[in-house]
Nucleic acid binder design. Structure first.
Lengths: 256, 256
DNA sequence: GGTCAACTGCGTACACTGTACGAAGAATAG
DNA sequence: CTATTCTTCGTACAGTGTACGCAGTTGACC
């Protein structure tokens, strides 16, 4: 599936929508819907059935209105997605944990992970040039505080936050895809592998890939439970923070 | 956009297609097309105009045949994507570099990066349960050799390769999206930011986000050239390999 | 109170998508 | 020569986002 991208209309209109600063019109019939009401329904559909199911007609049906009615409240689907994104970002607790930068970055990673797991469709919306709504701004600010005052340059701070966010995105994406592929196919990874081995053996000389066979089998035997995603996440996060720690150590104690 | 997922038909048919083991039929007219010919055209379209442009009708038009003709060669679009994926994986040089595991993992990361940059649509096809074609198998085998014999368990080997691949995927995705958003909007990130600041200032109290303002401005000033993607990639890869190095160090010298 | 501008709701239409179905014709086995 | 198998592909269907324009409602102003 494709990446959904957000609205590209003029900034003023978009920000008005995100910050709910649209001046109420004086004339004409009172609108029967609200931006928040539409967003709530859209979120319900996207959370329960995925972005692919969240068509404009579907959201409109759910509200009992015609499809084109939505376009009185949002210039297009992109802007609706923008507001949805900013809305769910508001669910982040944004806890400031006591301790060092590592504990803080760990918290950032975990909260983002929770959010992605709760709203998997987030994985499919582009994060470049995010809609600058109140919650998007607050999230970025909170993430930067995790790496403030530990000797990094501004550029390194941004790169580090982006690195952690990118990691979480990838890890959750893998986990969510794994969950979905099991549902869609009705097979676990192990069953899938076992269904392919006989044909592969006959067709493609499985002996030519000894490492793959060995490691693939080990992975299949060990990891067929949903806990493997948790495990992989922890493993990767440890590696990543270890890596950041090398950089931070160099900065705080410059003379190695 | 949504993630495209691959064919879910029976393994035998899929593997037959991937390894080109379809028995030639004895009766009936000779097919005018070939699997490879169709894949070549599909790749051309996907590389040049993205997955969204690569519809079945479009590929068929390009070949001068009817759309349904393609379904004589592939059960569905998913299987066509499977063969495309395995085909471009064949472009990997799969160099085995002299030196330690770090040099080898570095090479893995860089070759994958090159591949993603050359075929950005790869970022949009699901990588869970990849089509087990010859090149997919060879790629995995080659990646595992990079971390073989350095004291990691089979599970850690797989996790490490997945970690590096996941990182590259995320980093290139960000870079490619950045490139595309500049093309689509005709604005650099800096121009985009400067177009929003006045409205944000008026609407949303920019002073409430001091770190974001400071770091955002620094990033905007410094990174408006395409080289920032290169920079971010190097930075993240360093951190990641540093993290792996901590683990490998512990394994090879168990008593810390 | 009447008029007009502004506004809401929304039906219809258009150009797309993947692909199921089945008809028409070609090539070969018997 | 016939029957079978195979290829090509037109048509159709249920979707998608959204441009356009019409009908009806509301409030501001004279």
């Amino acid at each position: 599936m494709n990446q959904e991208h957000s609205g590209s209309g003029d900034p003023a209109k978009s920000l008005e929508l995100l910050w709910r600063r649209r001046p109420a019109p004086t004339r004409g019939p009172k609108p029967a819907q609200t931006v928040d009401g539409i967003v709530a329904v859209a979120l319900q559909v996207a959370d329960a059935e995925g972005l692919a199911a969240m068509s404009m007609r579907r959201v409109a049906d759910e509200l009992g209105v015609g499809a084109m009615t939505l376009y009185r409240y949002f210039p297009g689907k992109g802007e609706l997605l923008d507001v949805m994104l900013d809305t769910v970002y508001g669910e982040l607790p944004r806890r400031v944990v006591p301790g060092d930068w590592r504990a803080a970055l760990d918290e950032v990673a975990r909260e983002n992970r929770e959010l992605y797991l709760r709203h998997p469709w987030l994985l499919q919306v582009a994060i470049n040039r995010p809609p600058l709504g109140p919650n998007v701004m607050a999230k970025y600010e909170w993430e930067l505080t995790a790496v403030e005052g530990i000797g990094l340059t501004d550029l390194e701070m941004d790169a580090t936050v982006a690195l952690v966010n990118g990691y979480v995105h990838g890890a959750v994406r893998t986990a969510v895809e794994a969950r979905q592929v099991i549902q869609r196919s009705g097979m676990t990874d192990k069953e899938w592998w076992l269904a392919h081995v006989p044909h592969l053996d006959q067709i493609g000389d499985l002996d030519k890939f000894p490492l793959s066979s060995r490691v693939g089998t080990a992975v299949g035997n060990e990891f067929d439970a949903p806990y493997d995603a948790e495990h992989a996440f922890e493993y990767g996060l440890e590696r990543l923070l270890d890596g950041v720690s090398v950089l931070v150590g160099n900065r705080t104690a410059p003379e190695g």
